[in-house]
Amino acid sequence: MATFGVIVFPGSNCDHDAYHAMKHVMNCDVKFLWHKDTDLAGIDFLIVPGGFSYGDYLRSGAIARFSPIMQEVVKFAEKGGPVMGICNGFQILLEAHLIPGAMMHNQKLRHVCKDIYMRCETTDSLYTSGLEKGQIFNIPVSHGEGNFFISDDGLKSLQDNDQVLFRYCDANGDLTEESNFNGSIDSIAGITNTGRNVLGMMPHPERAMEKILGSEDGKPIFESILNSLSVA
């Protein structure tokens, strides 16, 4: 059985959501890892959770990227270890250059906290292998800087290499200007690296795990991860 590690930075606030999702909904072994830890022994899967690490000073994720544990996370990812960055975690992984691109302020400048729809764009990753291409998820977002940006060349290479895992869409699965609420380039909600072991996504699947809390659309993503880890 895989052991999950959830990294805790000063200012993380979705660390407990991620812990709860993995421990009590998915029944997995989970450990919190403090940002000053440097030992990832026994960890099979890393979650970099959402929040406001280091108060989002300078740029979201810019300071967290240099915390002691992130040096180990980079090594772990470079060896092919799976790393999932959610929201602020996505921003940290971008700053750490584990995935390409950058985050800008939402186009309309507001922090957006609501349930949105996103669409699975490829099943070619350990995160999405158990999903269906085109499958629609109703999942919460909560961010002020989720406006994904990348150069034209960078975008082309993301598309050519099938690295876009999720796009914002409407309830019917169509990509519209309105459904792309934060102004992300190409409606991008989540991408993977070329090695396909690192995922960055702005929506919060770990907050959509139980019907009683609104949606359990996040669950298939974690089921997909567990399946991929068990056959790996």
């Binding site: 300078l58 240099f66 691109g101 950058a102 800008m104």
Partner: peptide, 8 residues
């Protein structure tokens, strides 16, 4: 290294 993000 830190103060600017040269992607943007």
């Amino acid at each position: 290294k830190l103060l600017a993000n040269e992607v943007m």
